[in-house]
Design a protein around this nucleic acid. Structure first.
Length: 564
RNA sequence: UGAGGGUUGGUCUAGUGGCAAGACGACGGGUUCUGGCCCCGUUAACACAGGUUCGAAUCCUGUACCCUCAGCCA
């Protein structure tokens, strides 16, 4: 697929193009998405997935899905499964290129032996604390371990014993012999292997030594003949080591390119913190619709197209940035506007009785399924004397710019009639509980023959025909734009991030909407039938995103003025 | 105070020596049987200071500020 003319270039594409022109990798483009299976994928990973699979596709190359499973303490198969599902759902296909770093453990071991034999690695018996203090600081050089000058034979023997389980965890490690005074701390004899007497989810009990990221990653890239190893900025310092290992071993050498990870306003994109939300019970699992995980967005009702489009629009660069959540919302609205069928649903019902409409009469009215797409056709909606409208659509004493229903005012019921409010009934608490109206029979279908205008159109649902539903309204999970910079991110969780409405009234056609499918509730927003809690006789809808709302802005503005 | 990166409207991203562009947002208007969509318009940026040049966001020098690194995590 060729990039759209409107898609701006970026520095990674330029590097790839330059390599293609110079013939550096014989015209090949091979990328990889290398998740560690220790958590669920989030929208930040989606950016990386789109980049890696996107470039491969753009240049006729391939992209590998490779699990970076080098730490048995944190990883497990359930994460492997969820990651595969999420990548697939996003619309990408790794074809036969599914790999695991753990499949290379034998080769890693051989490379480690090579390093030892050439005097470039040694077994260190310092304690973890000693290693830390020997490392020096950012401004002071470190000092060499007393074990640094063990002979090749001794190192070989010790390393083999490590692998054979002769040492306890923490007793020794394999280190690269580079330079304890290196200005880049990463290069001060980095650890290559550590002892972990834990079974691995794929290799079982075969190994009790496991390679560190820096050792495993560059070797995996090299083994798979990756051309462009695209990763995030925090690995910039590690590139020197990536290059050192491959150069020292004198093996195939991909190019590492770093980009800035995604930050999204009002959300958190840190696996560790997301795990905390899940395990602390702050959310309803990894796929809670408020979570910025791929599975959370999926359950919420986002489409893969919207997320991919978002990833394209945010671009890619090296500077730290904070993308406005409004852009993501724009992307899903844009996609669903074209595709989602429209329905009428009343979230907070207010009963209306048409006094001059026969009590036993029921009419069938025709409604358009999607004004953006005539091919989606029409459907029938029942209309009768009693129906529900949105509580928000009536005000006893309307402020300026409120165009909806009020005493004495005429509005249109979508696809139905013009009605005029003649009276309203309040309960003991003074809350309006019922409206009495009259209708104009001449306006059937929503147009008046005399050409008179109304200032607004309301959605409605016939009382006797309505189906009941539970509707879940989601708001930002956090109250501040940058939750990570809060002293405790859990303290800035939005208490109103989920609002559950039990008495919603929906038009009957919604009973047939497939679970998991998106639709628009006219004038309110996009919703989808929740896959977790919906059953055949109990509908639960998730609000994906509201429609843009001019009135909400005006109301907010008016509120602000009053407070002044 | 070491090393590696970075700095273009409110936000994100182009621009690679020759008119600072696009998207989102905000604001205003048009249209409308969704206060939606769509359309039109407005707003608003090259961190700073020098230098090179006919000409600098772009090249050079310096300064400021921001990010990353002292895991046997990735």
């Amino acid at each position: 697929m060729k990039p759209e003319a409107s898609v701006p270039s970026n520095f990674i594409r330029q590097v790839i193009q330059a390599d293609l022109e110079s013939g550096r990798y014989e015209g090949r483009v091979v990328t990889r998405f290398p998740p560690e299976p220790n958590g669920y994928l989030h929208i930040g990973h989606a950016k990386s997935i789109c980049l890696n699979f996107g470039f491969a596709e753009e240049f006729g190359g391939t992209c590998h899905l490779r699990f970076d499973d080098t730490n048995p303490l944190k990883e497990n198969v359930s994460y492997v499964d969820s990651i595969k599902e999420d990548v697939k759902w996003l619309g990408f296909d790794w074809d036969v290129h599914l790999y695991f770093a753990s499949d290379y453990f034998d080769r890693f071991y051989d490379y480690a032996i090579d390093l030892i034999k050439t005097g470039k690695a040694y077994v260190d018996s310092l304690t973890p604390e000693e290693i830390r203090s020997y490392r020096g600081t950012l401004t002071e050089p470190g000092k060499e371990s007393p074990y640094r000058h063990r002979t090749v034979e001794e190192n070989l023997e010790l390393f083999q014993k490590m692998a054979a389980g002769k040492f306890d965890e923490g007793e020794c490690v394999l280190r690269a012999k580079i330079d304890m005074a290196a200005p880049n701390i990463i290069m001060r004899d980095p650890t290559l292997y550590r002892i972990r007497k834990r079974p691995h989810h794929r290799t079982g009990d075969k190994w009790c030594i496991y390679p560190m990221y820096d050792f495993a990653h560059c070797l995996s890239d090299s083994i798979e003949r990756i051309t462009h190893s695209i990763c995030t900025l925090e690995f910039e310092n590690n590139r020197e080591l990536y290059d050192w290992i491959l150069d020292t071993l004198d093996i195939y050498h991909p190019r590492q390119i770093e980009f800035a990870r995604l930050n999204l306003s009002y959300t958190i994109l840190s696996k560790r913190k997301l795990i905390e939300l899940v395990e602390g019970g702050y959310v309803d699992g990894w796929n809670d619709p408020r979570m910025p995980t791929i599975s959370g967005f999926r359950r919420r009702g986002y489409t893969p197209e919207a997320i991919r489009n978002f990833c394209e629009r945010i671009g890619v660069a090296k500077r730290d940035s904070m993308v406005d959540l409004a852009l993501l919302e724009h992307c899903i609205r844009e996609d669903l506007n074209k595709r989602a069928p429209r329905f009428m649903g009343v979230l907070r019902p207010l009963k209306v009785v048409i006094e001059n409409y026969p009590a036993d009469k029921v009419e069938t009215l025709e409604a358009i399924n999607n004004p953006e797409d005539q091919s989606m056709g029409t459907r029938n909606i029942p209309f009768s004397r009693e129906f529900y409208i949105e509580k928000d659509d009536f005000m006893e004493t309307p402020p300026k710019k409120f165009f909806r229903l009020a005493p004495g005012r005429e509005v249109r019921l979508r696809y139905a009639y013009f009605i005029t409010c003649t009276d309203f009934i309040k309960d003991e608490q003074g809350e309006v509980v019922e409206l009495r109206c009259t209708y104009d029979p001449q306006t059937r279908g929503g147009d008046s023959p005399d050409g008179r205008k109304v200032k607004s159109t309301l959605h409605w649902v016939s009382a006797t025909h309505a189906i009941d539903a539970e509707v879940r309204l989601y708001n930002d999970l956090f109250t501040v734009e940058e939750p990570v910079s809060a002293e405790d991110f859990k303290a800035v969780l939005n208490k109103d991030s989920l609002e559950i409405l039990h008495g919603a009234k929906l038009e009957p056609a919604l009973a047939d909407l497939e679970i998991g499918k998106q639709c628009q509730f006219e004038r309110l927003g996009y919703f989808c039938k929740d896959v977790k809690y919906s059953t055949s006789d109990h509908s639960v809808f998730n609000r994906i995103v509201t429609l843009r709302d001019q009135w909400a802005k005006v109301k907010k503005q008016q509120g602000a003025n009053e407070r002044k």
